[in-house]
Design a protein around this nucleic acid. Structure first.
Lengths: 143, 143
DNA sequence: GCCATCTGCTTGAGGTCGTCAAACGTCGCT
DNA sequence: AGCGACGTTTGACGACCTCAAGCAGATGGC
């Protein structure tokens, strides 16, 4: 009996671990961007998840952030206190509070997205052909 | 003048954004693993970063976790209280505290790593050839 | 209409995270 | 020995996170 068919770690597993490592080792710019805008990481995450021009219920945001409803209340409180976001009761169901990104919020968000889309050094070590290949694989996976 | 040479978003930028999204949208298993072991996310992160059999100074761990030295003190306190980790002053410099993963800690860590290396559904949608391609690109980038 | 029930959000308690400033013990050097 | 630098810890304070409880608004049966 030689090597069994199942490898010790599949290519998908190893790819997943490598991606996790790549992200973990390159969170420096993320924290730097947070500090620059004087926002906490959860606040930045929330602002990033809120599409401007798309009113989003609190509970939807909670789902996206994998956390409790009551937790978003506090995070949104602080974003609202800074004038980056507003709450507006939905017209058809006034229990629901829609979150809206203000103009200032959209400006901050745009700066954040710009900074966070800056690829880290390991990706830049790939040739442009390889970068495209990587992008296409990810597009297909997430498609 | 036609389209300028610099594209609106480079392939590397888009790949980076897609990877970030893939990780953000697939943190469910991570939180599930934390809950299963009754550990907080930072505690899991720390335990995952500590290679068993490699004594690691507190400040090294702080660097890996992108956070303050005084913060890891508390996190390690809790891990130590659970018997997953121990502190031992380095022999040549007694200011330094080396962190050691206990046998029980190594067992918990092994379970965690096994769970966290499970690739998310989007990666499994790629063919095995594409998975290998993705893995090879990431290997090369992280070289 | 009226009430029970459910849902979405908020509040409060309790614990962890995260950062800063200050303190303590240890090291290296002169 | 004494001085400055370093690794860790402590304490204070705010933010995060979860749970349980509460509140207003919506829904369905009668």
């Amino acid at each position: 009996m030689g090597t069994p068919a199942a490898p010790p770690t599949s290519a998908a597993s190893e790819a997943w671990l490598l991606m996790s490592r790549l992200l973990r080792e390159n969170r420096g710019p993320f924290f730097a961007a947070c500090a620059e805008e004087r926002l906490s990481p959860p606040q930045v995450m929330a602002l990033q998840l809120l599409e401007p021009a798309i009113p989003t219920p609190m509970s939807d945001l909670a789902g996206l952030m994998h956390c409790d409803n009551s937790n978003v209340t506090g995070i949104v409180d602080r974003l609202e206190a800074r004038g980056l976001v507003t709450r507006r009761p939905a017209t058809h169901d006034r229990r629901i509070k829609h979150l809206l990104v203000t103009d200032e919020g959209a400006a901050v968000r745009a700066r954040l997205v710009a900074q966070l889309s800056e690829p880290p050094e390991p990706l830049l070590r790939l040739s442009t052909a390889e970068q495209r290949q990587l992008r296409d694989l990810l597009r297909k996976a997430l498609g």
